[in-house]
């Protein structure tokens, strides 16, 4: 049963450029869902529609069965963590966190209790008298999170919250966010362009491209079974070959025959495979084979990576360091049917 639903959302900027095209998304209660995609794909816009900063041209946003499309931001009761944190510089940590509670006209005792409690959870108890500009990036991030959580929001929205932190802190904070999110059981939307961050934190991932969701699935499935060429490329696949369905097999334009384990609708698809899954073909392999010339060789420690030029274009192949192929030599690549993934072009 979906808790949060976006149905057929259209958003245009300045009446011209369409940023979201009939976007659909369903999120279950307590889930952490990431919106992943390159800049300009519409992920932040989607988040802003949910937050209420943007009113979609058409479509419905509902939460827990209630249509909230036209409800103004301040009546939605969602917690938002901004990319810039957007802490109020004129207020102390305590007052920043208490802000939302004061707007709800809670009495002083209640405010104090709730603020102290959330500061404790976020590990900020000793900083309550500090001002934002006196704190480090990671601490500010926590304040922003505490401020968003203390109002006991129906939804937590995080807009690239980790992008301003250095690499090490980012890993700590994403575990922290996950821990707090699970502890409070709060349904969360997380916007990011970093796939590693996204995979590590999310229950489900929506990969977005040009205003639509290309694939909505668990991180594992997206990593192992990308459905479209865009998703495959975005999560790091680099080897692609065009295939045409002919009976039970697929053929390249040059006529090489490929078989795969999973079937795909459509006659024209693309095959993709990770560099470490490509093998060197033996004598007996007569299909799923591509021959090519070895180009640039790069030493990566445990392995060599080769650029192999084939009739289907450049392929990256990773082989153990013990196996060495010279530049310029001809090799036959074997793409095992269990590893070759078909995606929509």
């Amino acid at each position: 049963m979906a808790y949060m639903t976006l149905k057929d959302i259209d958003v245009r900027y300045d009446k011209k450029k369409q940023v979201l095209k009939g976007l659909d998304l369903e999120v279950k209660e307590g889930e952490l869902v990431s919106l992943l995609g390159p800049s300009g794909c519409g992920k932040t816009t989607t988040l802003r529609v949910v937050a209420g900063f943007i009113e979609p041209e058409s479509g419905v946003f509902s939460l827990d069965g209630e249509d909230l499309t036209k409800v103004p931001v301040h009546k939605r009761n969602f917690g938002i963590v901004f990319q810039s944190y957007a802490l109020f510089p004129h207020l102390s940590v305590y007052d920043n966190v208490a802000f939302g509670l004061k707007m709800r006209k809670l009495d002083k005792g209640q405010i104090e209790q709730k603020v102290k409690n959330i500061l404790e959870i976020c590990g900020l108890s000793e900083f309550e008298k500090r001002f934002p500009q006196q704190m480090s990036g990671g601490q500010r991030q926590r304040v922003a999170l505490a401020r968003a959580l203390v109002i006991e929001p129906k939804l937590l929205l995080l807009d690239e919250p980790l992008s301003n932190l250095d690499a090490k802190l980012r890993i700590n904070m994403r575990m922290e966010i996950k821990r707090i999110q699970k502890k409070l059981g709060i349904t969360t939307l997380f916007v990011t362009h970093d796939q590693e961050e996204c995979f590590s934190i999310s229950d489900k991932v929506a990969v977005m491209n040009q205003g639509v969701i290309e694939q909505f699935d668990t991180p594992e499935n997206i990593y192992q079974r990308p459905k479209t060429e865009f998703v495959a490329r975005f999560i790091g696949f680099e080897n692609f070959l065009s295939l045409k369905k002919e009976g039970n097999v697929y053929k390249t334009e040059a006529g090489a025959v490929f078989t795969v384990e999973t079937v795909k609708d459509g006659d024209f698809v693309a095959g993709t495979i990770r560099p470490e899954d490509i093998r060197i073909a033996g004598e007996k392999e007569d299909h799923n084979v591509l021959s090519g010339t070895v180009g640039v060789r790069t030493f990566l420690g445990k392995s060599y990576q080769y650029e192999v030029l084939t009739a289907e274009g450049k392929f990256l192949v990773s082989r153990p360091a013990e196996e060495v192929y010279e530049e310029g030599s001809t090799i036959r690549l074997y793409l095992p049917e269990s590893k070759l993934i078909l995606v929509n072009k």
């Binding site: 009761n77 917690g79 938002i80 810039s84 109002i151």
Partner: peptide, 15 residues
């Protein structure tokens, strides 16, 4: 930044 106003709105303040 616009985010200041947006943060305040998201915390339940009207404009």
């Amino acid at each position: 930044g616009d985010d200041m106003m947006e943060a305040a709105l998201s915390l339940g303040a009207d404009r």
